[in-house]
Design a protein around this nucleic acid. Sequence first.
DNA 1: TTTGGTGCAAAATTTTTGCACCGCG
DNA 2: CGCGGTGCAAAAATTTTGCACCAAA
Lengths: 156, 156
Amino acid sequence: MTDLSDREISWHYNSLNKYCCRLTKPRRAILDILSDTGRHLSADQIYKEASKISSGGGLSTIYRNLELLVRIGLVWKFEAGDNKARYEIAKRPDESHHHHLICKKCNSIIDYSDSIGNEKDFIREREKKLSSIYNFKIENHSIDFFGVCHTCSKNK
Amino acid sequence: MTDLSDREISWHYNSLNKYCCRLTKPRRAILDILSDTGRHLSADQIYKEASKISSGGGLSTIYRNLELLVRIGLVWKFEAGDNKARYEIAKRPDESHHHHLICKKCNSIIDYSDSIGNEKDFIREREKKLSSIYNFKIENHSIDFFGVCHTCSKNK
DNA sequence: TTTGGTGCAAAATTTTTGCACCGCG
DNA sequence: CGCGGTGCAAAAATTTTGCACCAAA
């Protein structure tokens, strides 16, 4: 079910450790849940999932830990346009891909790999250029295409 | 003060008309405010600006009309990562550029024109490819780079 | 007069905060 | 013991909704 190898899992766990943060049950639950789905969940969805597992923590704990994990770089936060933040597990920096197709009708989110075409190279070159023009230290990016998904365009 | 020509202004006004929506005072206020700043404002900021002008409308009117204007395509909504939606005036489709540098420290947003390099071509080609692969009707897109702006990286 | 639009207040949703308590180091 | 971490409940912030009223076609 997991689409992250054990190597990735331990990378996340170890990173937490590196920042002198304990790998507590709620934190492990969040990382595991996000790793397992590989998708983008809202805080509430994570909370519900975590509640199934014993000791998943309260909602505020989820929020606090998500904030921590995002700050450390283990989880990526983004907003899909419905005023509700989504969280996804971070990949190693050089494998990161925060590129989405977001359906305006049903709010579903498709991840597409940035390995399609030469997107990665394009982004890298673009980051270099923008950094120097605007004197801006770029840490990460997000590319979202909005529209209507296949299913929704049929059912109308 | 305005960075949209009269031609642009009338385009927005006429579009409203085309959809059988009245150009009421609050709507005009929103369009004017967004056109004048040319920047990204939150609903609350628009409300405060509108309140200075007589008859800018209540906050709920602002929200309702923003939703309308976004749906019609005259205003572009996006979320900058602080759980607060921002709105910017739409340009004509072929001139649209929803590309931002967002500072994680001070939440400031820099617009950069997609005319830098061959970004426009790249996006167009990418949209075509993604559409066919995922059977997804793409309507618009957003490219955001997150990091630390010049000012914030000095004041630390 | 009919329908679209507004404004206020109340409600809903998402996220944050205060505080007492728990447990690892 | 001290401090990081948790959980509950209360609060804050943003956005949505209900409803009475207004005004243009």
